[in-house]
Design a protein around this nucleic acid. Structure first.
Length: 210
DNA sequence: TATTCGATGTGCT
DNA sequence: GCACATCGAATAC
């Protein structure tokens, strides 16, 4: 069943651009997840770029393995990995086949399907806790390893254009890593309440307008 | 409010 | 064996 939002899906060429460009450009776009009759969606408010086999923080650093081979596929698919024995993180693969780069979606602002998200996360305290973190949003959106390598032109998960609002993009170091930690590869919408709460929010390296 | 710490399973060395 | 792109409960203040 076609959905009105389908015609606003980001074109596959969007994902073939430079990874830092994609990482910043994804802010304000809408992540859409369809499960059964439900449509869950949210505005992307925080991302991190992982630049491929030359970036020591990227899973593609080093050899090709069963886990990271997804990263080397053509941009425009999902890379979902399991972490810390409990959680999943959702990435968008970028650039040409063989580059090994991706953008981690770290936080979204819920748009539709909030009640369904709450059913999946009955213990949250505030609405922010639904999606202000990479593993939290995967829980709320029902994203797990079954979506690894999913085509972002598919209906089960995709990203569409947002509205034309203007906002300030802030840039900081990446969160939760040790190798390659000093690179300014984290992008977030300044002052958006759904951004991950972190001390790096006060250590903004640069800003730009969307 | 800020910081610490345990849970947990998988992939790679 | 150990590191790990996290979370949330417990603790300290």
């Amino acid at each position: 069943m076609p959905d009105i939002a389908d015609k606003y899906k980001l074109h596959e060429n969007f994902y073939l651009q430079d990874t830092l460009t994609v990482s910043a450009a994804l802010l304000g776009k809408i992540l859409v997840r369809k499960t059964g009759r439900h449509v869950l969606s949210g505005k992307i408010v925080e991302t991190e770029a992982y630049l491929g086999d030359s970036d020591p923080a990227c899973h593609a650093y080093g050899r090709v393995t069963p886990r990271n081979h997804t990263l080397y596929m053509k941009g425009g698919i999902a890379y979902v990995y399991f972490i810390y024995g409990n959680y999943y993180c959702f990435n968008v693969v970028t650039e040409r086949k063989g580059v090994g780069a991706a953008v981690l979606i770290r936080a979204v602002e819920p748009f539709t399907g909030v009640e369904q998200m709450k059913l999946r996360r009955p213990k949250i305290r505030t609405e922010h806790d639904l999606t202000n973190g990479p593993a939290k949003l995967c829980l709320s959106f029902g994203i797990d390893r079954k979506l690894n390598e999913a085509d972002l032109q598919s209906d089960e998960i995709y990203i569409s254009k947002g509205n034309k609002e203007k906002f300030t993009i802030a840039v900081s170091r990446r969160i939760g890593i040790e190798k390659g930690a000093h690179f300014p590869y984290r992008f977030f919408i300044k002052d958006n309440p759904y951004v991950t709460r972190h001390k790096l929010n006060k250590e903004i390296i640069s800003e730009m307008k969307s």
